[in-house]
């Protein structure tokens, strides 16, 4: 176990260093001189020189990177030029909102994806299987921002059942919060449910064909015990770890979903930052999501390792 952990960590650290380099490198894509871009329309030479000194733009690039990463390791992500607040504060404010959305979406995805996958495998080649596959492909191919717009059209504009936007903090009013979150969570969750469905289906088909299932049936166990206890538990292992990998897609999708439903989370933060040319915020959001993704993958690997006795030597 310790050896496995060490090996995983040995890969993790260079990966994170490269992630930080890529994100730092993004600002090199800015056309022209960033100081001039930041100084705005007036192009006051003195302001440009001040900005250059303030953001260390007059130093060699590797020194700039060193200063930047050094700051981040101490929790200093720079300052938002637009709102004049530390980026770390903005990140901490918005993070819980996106985490709530992500957790709810994951719940939706699991509640739809796992049963659909199991049913599809049990009825392999018959109509429930085809139906599940069609719905799965539909889920994979629908752009979630369009699904969001269509749901607002149906449930908010026509039926008036749910609010189209207006985020309420769960500590303020949990019921109103859930009402505002149910549509976005559904929109984000269905795309991932399709992925879960496909993987659960193939994992179940594989497990159902194995000897111990035949043994369990031969022992005369009830079919629901065979399926629920013997087959599903084994099939669920790779699918659950897949959840961590899908987290990246969830964060990508959250950007647009938050935009449509006006949810003040990470996605809204990065989009607003993009339009305000608030590059420190963009970098902060990207760095946070990438780090979260890498760490979740590590957790998934550890979980996989723990539940799979064959890997333990």
């Amino acid at each position: 176990m310790t050896r496995f952990l060490f090996r995983r960590l040995a890969i993790l650290i260079p990966t994170l260093i490269f992630v930080s380099m890529i994100i730092f490198g993004l600002q090199q894509l800015l056309p022209g001189d960033p100081a001039i871009a930041m100084a705005g329309e007036e192009r006051d030479p003195q302001a440009i020189a001040e900005l250059r000194a303030k953001y260390n733009l007059d130093k060699p690039i590797w020194v700039q990177y060193g200063l930047w990463i050094g700051g981040i390791l101490q929790g200093d992500f720079g300052e938002s030029i637009r709102i004049q607040l530390p980026v770390s504060q903005l990140l901490l404010e918005k993070l819980p909102v996106t985490i709530e959305l992500a957790v709810l979406s994951m719940l939706v995805a699991l509640l739809i994806g796992l049963p659909a996958g199991v049913i599809s495998a049990l009825y392999n080649g018959r109509w429930p299987d085809y139906l599940a596959n069609v719905i799965g492909l539909w889920g994979l191919s629908t752009p979630n921002f369009w699904l969001g717009i269509m749901m607002i059209l149906l449930f908010s504009v026509h039926l008036g059942w749910l609010p189209a936007s207006g985020y309420v903090s769960p500590t303020e009013d949990l019921w109103a919060n859930l009402q505002a979150m149910i549509m976005p969570a559904f929109v984000l969750g269905t795309g991932i449910a399709a992925v879960f469905m496909r993987h659960t289906r193939s994992a179940m088909l594989q497990v159902l064909a194995s000897d111990y299932i035949r043994t369990a049936r031969a022992k005369g166990l009830y079919e629901r015990v065979v399926i629920g206890k013997h087959a599903f538990r084994n099939a669920a292992v790779p699918v659950i770890t897949l959840g961590a990998l899908e987290f990246g897609q969830l964060l990508s999708g959250a950007v647009l979903t938050e935009q449509i439903f006006s949810i003040p989370g990470f996605g809204k933060l990065i989009v607003d930052a993009v339009f305000n040319r608030d590059y420190a915020v963009v970098q902060g959001v990207v760095l946070c999501t990438a780090t979260a993704y890498v760490l979740l993958n590590l957790l998934a690997d550890i979980a996989y390792f723990l539940v799979n006795p064959r890997l333990r030597t």
Partner: peptide, 24 residues
Amino acid sequence: MRFTDAMLAVPFLILAIAMAAFLG
């Protein structure tokens, strides 16, 4: 491979948004 892992660690659309933001 480490560099590729790093690129893959940033969610696809977020990386594209960030790049498009800096490129214009």
